[in-house]
Design a protein around this nucleic acid. Structure first.
Lengths: 251, 251
DNA sequence: CGTTTCATTGATTAGTCTCAACGAAGGTGG
DNA sequence: CCACCTTCGTTGAGACTAATCAATGAAACG
């Protein structure tokens, strides 16, 4: 809930975008990099707990995550919160705010983050000048929808244990594709409250469910956050076949 | 589950697109209509129960609904089904299949439908030739994401009664914007099984929940389908403030 | 007119929530 | 450096929500 000061610098020129390093990220050609370089306004460095984008605001820029974790969420009037999805490097946020009137959800940092910041007014110009990048944006929007479809299936129809297993298998796969998995293990910077608000469960029942997964050796809960230990077991428990592994764009 | 024969005719030229009639649908200019006319391959007429798009297929065209109701869904291996969203006139379906490898969900007709069918290979060309239409497609993708966000919030965090009320308030608003609401009442062509699979509840509990809404006078269950009677009551019960009412594009 | 689909209802069980209390770790201010 | 406070994770008990099982009637379908 904090809204920490966030500095705006420019550490990574687009020619040396850190996202290039990841295997299935499709490279841009020279013209595109040049255009994006002008489209980019700067970088936003955000601390843990910073609200990067707030529901109801229309100001909003468009961001690509360069490093760090965040989550998207909505709340009901009485405070009940639902986490909609997680945001990892290469993900685009704020498109809703750019394309529609205003944001209908918020985004909060789970770890220190660096974000690449774009000017939303220039989006129509981008569509005119660089159809290939416009297509990439649509691709990313489509992927977000696909992830939401899976998450909704999970929350609606899987049992608590399956749901939890699905969540960590999902995060593992996404994190792996951006080089965050070391030694086939992953550290996820979440509180149990985040897990509960993702799965649509109470915090107490979430705790009991996580204990079961830990007892099976699928993961381990640490002081603040959790370590995914056995990705395959999580896939088995959730009966999920995993994300399609295809080359993906980024902007 | 039926896959009825579906005929392909061309009853509505783009210049006389039936979607023009709806108040907040943004009109296209002449150039756009001309282009869309070439982009359009024909019309698909689908019966109740027809699978318009199937999970795992990549063939898939891109469709805009001209009339009728459908729903998008995913299933788990053991048959548990989650309905992800409903599809009404003006909605675009099959974008995932066009942009990514293949469809990750299915779409089934709830009523007789007429769909406008586009050739997916021409999508990159559309992005090159008509950035304004490309932008509209992105707008529609963003709107779908926004709807999914709300539905996920509902399934994850609302009680059974609130969830059911939200569903019918949501359908009422969407249907109203495409002229389906007469006399402030709406007929929704659903079985209780559809409602259950949308809300993530069992059919028995869904039945009991719907009875409560009916007892309050918010809706009425008929032989096959339901009539929404009191939209305001549904809004109150679900504590939902409704969809933003803004002009929207269509293709 | 038999068969299937759909809605309905009651009884029982299972899963999840709420309430409550406590301990451990980390942060803060004196 | 210590004392206090807050946050976070953990656990048990009891209450409640929703699932499952089972049976029935009504309407649609062939």
């Amino acid at each position: 809930m904090k809204n920490n000061a966030a500095s705006t610098v420019r550490q990574y020129p687009c020619e040396r975008c850190p996202l290039q390093a990841f295997p299935h990220f499709q490279p841009h050609d020279k013209d595109e990099v040049e255009f994006l370089s002008g489209f980019k306004m700067g970088e936003l460095v955000a601390d843990i707990g910073t609200t990067v984008l707030g529901e109801g605001t229309s100001s909003a820029h468009l961001f690509t995550v360069l490093s760090g974790w965040a989550f998207r969420y909505k709340t009901l009037e009485d405070g009940r919160r639902q986490i909609l999805n997680y945001v990892l490097p290469g993900d685009l946020i704020g498109l809703q705010g750019s394309v529609m009137k205003e944001m209908q959800h918020s985004v909060e940092a789970l770890s220190p983050m660096v974000l690449c910041m774009f000017q939303r007014d220039k989006l129509p110009n981008l569509f005119r000048s660089f159809p290939s990048i416009a297509y990439d944006i649509t691709w990313l929007a489509s992927r977000e929808e696909q992830m939401l479809d899976e998450i909704l299936l999970s929350v609606g129809r899987r049992s608590a244990l399956e749901r939890a297993a699905y969540l960590f298998a999902f995060l593992f796969q996404r994190a792996k594709s951006v080089g965050m998995v070391k030694n086939d293990k992953l550290m996820v910077p979440l509180r149990q409250q985040h897990v509960a608000d993702t799965l649509g469960l109470s915090i107490v029942h979430t705790n009991k469910t996580l204990k079961k997964l830990a007892a099976k050796g699928a993961l381990r809960w640490l002081d603040r956050g959790c370590e995914v230990l056995d990705h395959q077991m999580l896939l088995d428990i959730s009966r999920w076949q995993g994300l399609p592994s295809v080359p993906r764009p980024y902007i």
